[in-house]
Design a protein around this nucleic acid. Structure first.
Lengths: 208, 208, 208, 208
DNA sequence: AATGAATGAGCCTTCATTCAT
DNA sequence: GATGAATGAAGGCTCATTCAT
């Protein structure tokens, strides 16, 4: 039955997420995943052609969910109020943190220690590019943002958020004071975006 | 024999670096490493108790070399000239990029896809902490740097450099326009550190 | 339901023939056969107790069809004309070739690469024996055939035809010029059967 | 050590021969082969890259040994005595029978039920072609041999011997009275080769 | 009767590690 | 100290067969 099958696929993915998160990719054996999903290996292989396919699907799912979580969150931001860019920035950082907080270990496995077929890399890049485009539009529309090139600035912002959030929360490494981290990250990005425009020649800005 | 042994250890580590870089951690078998080092597996196991020990040593070596490369570079910076912090910052970024550029693949393996025993994590953290301390001292000494807490700001700077440089150059992912990246990263960090001080009390910015 | 069931069995056998021919015995999975027969595996197992049973039935069917094809062809030969034996021989060779030409691959699977339970071997032998008996009768009745023992000669003829035709056409190996093969095979067998009788005693050729 | 390694390879091949002969290709598992060779699977895989490679080597070995056995036997035949062709024929048949008698089951596995990579088929054909060439030379040199085309006749002889000997002795099927088989096969081939030449035109044998 | 999801034994292969030489 | 053959546990995956629906 269609419904049943979809459910089983999901169960396998959930199980794989738990197993990978706990054991890493290499030690996340298909037998373990099957067991965790209360299924036989054979069944697992009726839903996925091989172990990597599970991983790929898992990454895809996380990517989608993460992207949508951010987009949804941003959609709730008042489009026209004051400080729009600042509020979008903060919301994005929050959403990204939320995306990772659930299962830090999983992200490590999914985005670092696993083999990523080129096809998947392409998707990763596509999602990032979409985010950059969205951000660039926001920056370009805000007169208070003084950056040489909105596209470049947008990419900096996006990759910085991704990298630092990932590092701060999505690692099995040392954990971090989240609120402080959140504050400092937004501060840095705000200063980057809203820095006073370079002085016109002749004007001095920072007197001794 | 002491000397000979040290040399052999180094040869194994070099071989391991090449093998891991080429094949990744999982496919970097001990036999391949031994072969690359023109050694028998048996001999390899007289120098290292197991595969992970090689990895650990390799990470340690890289960490040390990287740290020293940065420190050496910074030592060459004129301690008292103007814009000292800015110059240190730029030098650090340059040194970090240099650290990764040689062998991007290896860093990926060493710091992402390999198992890292807690013991190794502790060392990682220690090195980072040292860097943070050094940076904090620099920030605290510079009157133009207006940050609430030099220690926090130092950590932000250090982790941002690490994360973004790593992401930009030490990945097998999509590659990046390095000079542009370098410029944008320093710009962001400078704006973060040298932002005009918060308005004097009485002006409200973020009310309770 | 009797009729329906018979039809379904036939459909399964046909499907199995196609699948075995295409994929070989090992890769001819029951699932593939079921799919090819537009049936579920479950249903397939209601018609055959296991995979080997399908194979056995298939061999049986091929044997029967092949035997009857030959017999029918021979029945069309004028029983009393001159050169009766020669014509029967030619017709047999033609019929055997015809039997294999349709689906060379299938014969390879059925008679070479598959497991043959003893029960099946017995049937194979029975069919061959019947053919030998028929041939022996023909030889014995022909005064121009000078063989020591019609039964032995009959077996030689039958097995030679079987083996060589099989080899010539029922292999995935190198293919063969059929008309030439056909001519040479009949020539050889005719010479075998119609060789001039051994010289009357007194002439020595192969002394004791 | 070179010698030790060669010996181990041979031990594996011998073990594989026994295991394949007993269980067939599919059920001749690498673990069984290793066990039969009193070796661990791991070791087996240090000598052969995979199961098929063992098979290929085994086929090659058998082919070589078989071919040489025949050639050696023929070399012992007096080159210039009377009835040279007849004696060569008999010797060939004997040698071929000898080749198969040792381990009938193995031939079945090696040449029928196993997957044969194209590369191996090519070798098979090459050996056969060599044998055909040799035979053709013999036939062409014998004035008593009346065949339209020595090359064709040679191929008929070679394939007939191969096929019938194989069928008679190298099968797990019903076994056969070897001396009788031997006699009948040579008889047939001799009659084929030494049949009286076709009548000169003007003599009628087969009137319209 | 039919369906097709589920089962699980067992296959081929890899690789960190050991040990006889 | 060195060598490299040997080990064997364990992994990914297949497929004949069963069984709940």
């Amino acid at each position: 039955m269609q419904h049943r099958a979809v459910e089983t696929r999901a169960r396998i993915l959930d199980a794989a997420a738990r197993v990978f998160s706990r054991h890493g990719y290499a030690a996340g054996t298909t037998n373990r995943i099957a067991a965790e999903a209360r299924l036989s290996v054979g069944s697992l292989y009726q839903y996925f052609p091989n172990k990597d396919a599970i991983l790929v699907e898992l990454v895809r799912r996380h990517l989608d969910q993460g992207f949508h979580a951010v987009v949804d969150r941003l959609a709730a931001i008042d489009a026209d109020g004051p400080d729009r860019t600042r509020r979008l920035l903060a919301a994005t950082v929050d959403a990204m943190i939320a995306n990772h907080v659930d299962d830090p270990g999983l992200h490590q496995v999914l985005f670092e220690e696993s083999p990523r077929p080129p096809e998947l890399l392409a998707e990763l890049h596509a999602v990032e590019d979409r985010a950059v485009d969205l951000a660039a539009a926001v920056l370009a529309a805000d007169p208070e943002v003084h950056v040489a090139d909105p596209a470049t600035a947008a990419r900096v912002v996006v990759t910085t958020i991704e990298s630092l959030v990932h590092r701060a929360v999505a690692t099995r490494d040392r954990k971090v004071d989240l609120p402080a981290f959140r504050h400092e990250l937004t501060t840095m990005l705000e200063r980057y975006l809203f820095a006073p425009p370079p002085r016109p020649p002749g004007t001095d800005d920072e007197p001794d």
